[in-house]
C-alpha cells in the first residue's frame, strides 16, 4: 500500500493548501521577474519522496486551475510508475484533466526531458530538478556561491570547462548543461540532455524549474536567451548517435531528429529508440506502422 492509496478518494483531496500555493506562486513570480535566479521557497512535505518530483509537483499544484490539462512524464515516458503516480495525484488533488499528448496539455511536468513537439506560448513546462545549483561542482561555500551569482562572477565555471576540455578534449558535461539565462544568471538545466537545451532558447513558452529537496524555484520566461556556456571556438554540440528507432525514424550519424535512448534487450544486445514515447507513437501511427486502435493506454490508474 502506498501513501496514495491512503488518500481520501473524494474528488478534491487537495494535497497542498491554498496558502502554500500562494506562497509558491509568489516565488514563481519572483523567479519570472529575475530570470535564472534561484528563489527559495518553503518546500512542503508531499506524498512523494523529495527527489522524486516533489518540487515539480508542488509547482504544478500551485499553478493549475480547473481548465488546465496536465501531462506528466518521466525520462520521456508517460507510462512510468512515478509519472503515473504524480499524474493521478494531481488529478485527484486538483480535479484537472490529464493527457499524454503534449499538444493538448497546458502544463507539462517533466523529469529529464523536454517534449520533442515545439511548445506554444499558452503552455508551461515544469521541470523537476534534483540539484539546482550549477556551481555546486566548483564551489561549496554557500556565501561564496551567493556572491558569485550576485556579481555574475562565473570564472570558476569557465575554469572547470577549460580543465574539462584540456583533460578530455571535449566538454563532457552531458546532462544539466550550464546555461546563461537572459545574459545574467547561470542555471543548471536539470538533468535534461544537451539535445533539449536549444529549444529553451527564445522559447515561446514559460519554463519553471523546481527543486523540492533544495527548496529552490527558478524560471526561464518566454523569449529569453538561454546560452550554453562554451568557448567561442568550441561550439556547443548536442548528442550524436546513429540509430534506427522502431518508429522507422532513421537517425543518420550525427543527425538526431528525436532524442534517442539505448534500451537494453534480454539477449544482452541493445536497441535505440526515441526517448519521447508519445512522440514516437504518433510517428508510428502516421507512418502506418501502428494501428491507432491498438495503442495501449499508458494511463495505469484510470
Amino acid at each position: 500500500m502506498t501513501v496514495l492509496d491512503a488518500l481520501p478518494s473524494v474528488e478534491h483531496a487537495a494535497v497542498l493548501d491554498e496558502s502554500s500555493k500562494r506562497e509558491i506562486r509568489r516565488a514563481i513570480l519572483t523567479a519570472i521577474a529575475v530570470p535564472g535566479y534561484q528563489v527559495p521557497f518553503g518546500s512542503r512535505e508531499m506524498p512523494v519522496a523529495r527527489g522524486w518530483g516533489s518540487g515539480g509537483l508542488q509547482l504544478t499544484l500551485a499553478i493549475v486551475g480547473p481548465d488546465d490539462v496536465v501531462k506528466v512524464y518521466d525520462q520521456g515516458e508517460d507510462g512510468g510508475v512515478n509519472a503515473a503516480n504524480l499524474r493521478r495525484l494531481i488529478r485527484r488533488s486538483e480535479g484537472v484533466e490529464t493527457t499524454t499528448d503534449p499538444r493538448q496539455a497546458t502544463v507539462i511536468q517533466t523529469r529529464h526531458r523536454v517534449p520533442e513537439d515545439e511548445l506554444r506560448a499558452d503552455q508551461t513546462l515544469v521541470l523537476q530538478v534534483p540539484v539546482p545549483e550549477p556551481l555546486r561542482g566548483v564551489e561549496r561555500d554557500m556565501n561564496e556561491l551567493r556572491r558569485m551569482h550576485a556579481e555574475g562572477d562565473y570564472s570558476k565555471m569557465w575554469v572547470s570547462l577549460y580543465e574539462d576540455l584540456v583533460r578530455n578534449g571535449v566538454i563532457t558535461e552531458t546532462t544539466g548543461y550550464p546555461c546563461l539565462v537572459g545574459g545574467r544568471y547561470v542555471i543548471a538545466t536539470t538533468p535534461i540532455p544537451r539535445w533539449d537545451v536549444p529549444p529553451l532558447h527564445q522559447a515561446a513558452f514559460l519554463s519553471l524549474f523546481s527543486a523540492g529537496r533544495e527548496k529552490r524555484i527558478y524560471a526561464i520566461p518566454p523569449y529569453t536567451d538561454v546560452e550554453p556556456l562554451t568557448f567561442e571556438d568550441v561550439p556547443f554540440e548536442v548528442e550524436k548517435v546513429s540509430a534506427r528507432c522502431r518508429c522507422g525514424l532513421v537517425v543518420p550519424d550525427g543527425d538526431l531528429q528525436s532524442y534517442q535512448v539505448e534500451i537494453p534487450q534480454q539477449d544482452g544486445s541493445s536497441v535505440w529508440a526515441c526517448s519521447d514515447t508519445d512522440w514516437c507513437t504518433r510517428q508510428r501511427v502516421e507512418a502506418g506502422l501502428l494501428d491507432p486502435s491498438a495503442i495501449t493506454e499508458t494511463e495505469v490508474d484510470l
Binding site: 562572477d153 570564472s155 570558476k156 569557465w158 575554469v159 577549460y162 580543465e163 576540455l165 584540456v166 568557448f231 567561442e232 571556438d233 568550441v234
Partner: peptide, 17 residues
C-alpha cells in the same frame, strides 16, 4: 594553464585557443 585561464576568463576571454 587553468589557473591562468581563471584570470583570463574573469577578464572576459572566451576563446579557448
Amino acid at each position: 594553464g587553468g589557473n591562468i585561464a581563471d584570470r583570463l576568463t574573469a577578464a572576459g576571454w572566451r576563446n579557448f585557443g
